[in-house]
Design a protein around this nucleic acid. Structure first.
Length: 581
RNA sequence: CGGGGAAUAGCUCAGCCUGGUAGAGCACUGCGUUCGGGACGCAGGGGCCGGAGGUUCGAAUCCUCUUUCCCCGACCA
């Protein structure tokens, strides 16, 4: 490719609405252009990286025995109604009507359609296992699209689905995909971690996320440096920090804490450690009648230590909160606690509430909590002595750095991550609701055991940039760079020698199978260098009269920056060695 | 969805308060001088000032409505 024929268009300044570095750099490098909120053109420069990611995915999935197909972007409501997701999905699924007023959805994912394929095509256990995948545009009408390609509404995703005859075989399919994902991310060249993830309504332990490590990631990932434990913070188990409850040593005392409504403020005022305080969170659950009218509400008090945060995913697993909960209204709080938020606690309730204590809180002694009276806290609080034992003890909190690892092999560390892949065992949820069966060896129909496997193709491109950039621009891993090498012809317009030599190198690299672009724009060197550093091409060869006079061309690796001199005859071998060696 | 903000050239922004011929830098076109780290000069092209309504002799500017975009938003008791 010659730069003079390519659409190269870089910006010195990013549009003011760009937030994160990947978005700014992709816009500045001319990879994407915004069309609407969360919706982008993938410009030629950007598409090259996207295609490279796709090629690696295809190669590894095909090798792992999966096969590619394409399902429609626009899917009939009927299929979604079969599984009940037409009603469940909420506004993030974009619904459209055709000219006959029939309902359709823009696919956010394709379980329904692929299960429909399976029930029509797969009749016998002898046809199993099968693994179908597609690389397709998805649409999710995010509440707040942001971060460019990282959380867009329209994006490209690889979604795959496996069909097996039983749970054991489905496990093998899962393992094969897990392994393939590892190979895919290894080849792409990103630092990543596979972590155990929440399985939601399906249950079981077969769910892993592949997280690209980046400080700007939206997810917190927890791992143990001394073992192979790794999990999303939503799932990571918090062990009790206090093995057994201590004996009370302080008397219960109602202490004035005027205007101190947070645990940190109270600890400051009283000169005590934050971890001796207990935080009260008030939730509510509603029971509705058949018409959806709320007939009864229950108020819950969740207690976590003052230095800990509630984990809502964990809270949602508690019996009674499983079907959804909300934070209580101020009116409900006053009705049950007789006090405004800020000074709430489990002692002296006006009306009964369900009290759930975090495992650590349940073993605390002499702790501090709100007194259910404005501007007062209790100190020296002890279970059993000052208040009844909690109704329930559960793991309620997010783990924090330094907590013991659940495998008891060390302490936990936390990093931020960007979720770029997810493998998930589905079981027969969809095959049952859509009645997708095959005939097993005994001649009886059985529901398929399914798994689903996603990779965010466009998000990988953004994540790669979040992880690999400097103040000059992008630093691509070579495997997904829009070009592997750029040849900059300095003084292109005036030097035939430069044109000849650069042209020869260009042909030689092409013949060697290298994805090379020749910058023949006759730009000033500063412009060329700045452009290619912004775009992030990993290898650069500079051909100019100055070097050619000494019989050399210059070579520079984007990530390293140091300039090396080579005889033109040697530089091709060196570049090929760096890229393919 | 709730709260805040913004909308003027392809991009970044000024002008608005105090109404009177629409501006700058970057980008783009032409010519010239330059030419190894985002050059300089001269001359240009490009705007229904997001849209609709109103006030006014006159509206980018004041008022109302509307659309779009951006930010913040469980809780942290």
């Amino acid at each position: 490719m010659r730069a003079s024929q390519f659409h190269l268009f870089t910006l010195k300044e990013a549009p003011s609405d760009a937030e994160v570095v990947s978005q700014k750099l992709m816009l500045r490098a001319g990879m994407i252009r915004k069309v609407a909120a969360g919706i982008y053109n993938y410009m030629p420069m950007g598409l090259r990286s996207i295609r490279k990611v796709e090629a690696i995915i295809r190669d590894e999935l095909d090798r792992a025995g999966a096969m590619e197909l394409v399902m429609p972007l626009v899917q009939p409501a009927e299929l979604w109604q079969e599984t009940g997701r037409w009603d469940k999905m909420g506004p993030e699924m974009l619904r459209i009507k055709d000219r006959h007023d029939r309902d359709f959805a823009m696919q956010p994912t394709s379980e329904e359609v692929v299960t429909d394929i399976a029930r029509q095509e797969l009749k016998s256990y002898r046809q199993l296992p099968k693994n179908f995948y597609q690389i397709q545009t998805k649409f999710r009408d995010e509440r707040r699209p942001r971060f460019g390609v990282m959380r867009g509404r329209e994006f490209v995703m690889k979604d795959g689905y496996s069909f097996d005859r039983d749970v054991e075989a489905a496990g093998r399919s899962y393992d094969a995909m897990y392994a393939a994902y590892g190979r895919i991310f290894d080849r792409i060249g990103l630092a990543y971690r596979a972590v155990a993830a929440d399985t939601g309504a399906i249950g079981g332990d077969r769910s892993h996320e592949f997280q690209v490590i980046a400080d700007t990631g939206e997810d917190a990932i927890v791992y143990c440096p001394d073992s192979d434990y790794a999990a999303n913070i939503e799932l990571a188990e918090a062990l009790p920090l206090i093995a057994t409850r201590g004996t009370p040593t302080s008397a219960l005392e109602k202490t004035p804490t005027p205007g101190k409504a947070t645990c940190a403020d109270v600890a400051d005022l009283l000169g005590i450690a934050l971890h001796t305080t207990v935080k009260s969170l008030v939730l509510a659950t509603d029971e509705a009648d058949d018409n959806g009218k709320i007939i009864k509400s229950t108020v819950w008090l969740l207690l976590v230590r003052g230095d800990h945060d509630l984990n809502e995913v964990k809270a949602g697993k508690i019996e009674g909160l499983k079907n959804g909960f909300r934070f209580a209204t101020e009116a409900e709080i006053i009705e049950h606690f007789g006090c405004k938020p800020g000074y709430l606690g489990p002692i002296g309730l006006r009306k009964p509430v369900r009290i759930v204590a975090d495992r650590t809180v349940a073993n605390m002694a002499d702790f501090v909590c709100g007194a259910n009276a404005e501007d007062f806290h209790y100190t020296g609080v002890n279970w059993a002595r000052d208040l009844p034992e909690p109704d329930l003890v559960a793991d309620l909190r997010n783990v924090i750095e330094g907590d013991p690892s659940p495998d008891r092999k060390g302490v936990l560390a936390i990093q931020r991550g960007i979720e770029v892949g997810h493998v998930f065992y589905l079981g027969n949820k969809y095959s049952k609701s859509m009645n997708a069966t095959f005939l097993d060896i005994d001649g009886k129909p059985k529901h398929f055991e399914m798994g689903c496997y996603g990779i965010g193709v466009t998000r990988i491109v953004g994540a790669a940039i979040e992880q690999n950039h400097d103040d000059k621009g992008i630093i691509w891993p070579a495997a997904i760079a829009p070009f592997e090498v750029v040849i900059c012809g300095v003084g292109w317009g005036k030097s035939e020698l430069v044109r000849d030599e650069a042209g020869k190198l260009y042909e030689a690299l092409r013949k060697a199978g290298i994805d090379v672009i020749l910058d023949d724009r006759d730009e000033r060197p500063g412009v060329m260098f700045a452009d290619w550093e912004l775009i992030g091409v990993p290898h650069r060869v500079t051909v100019g009269d100055r070097g050619l006079k000494e019989g050399v061309v210059e070579y520079q690796e984007r990530r390293i920056g140091e300039q090396l001199k080579f005889a033109p005859a040697d530089v091709v071998a060196h570049v090929v060695g760096r890229l393919r060696g």
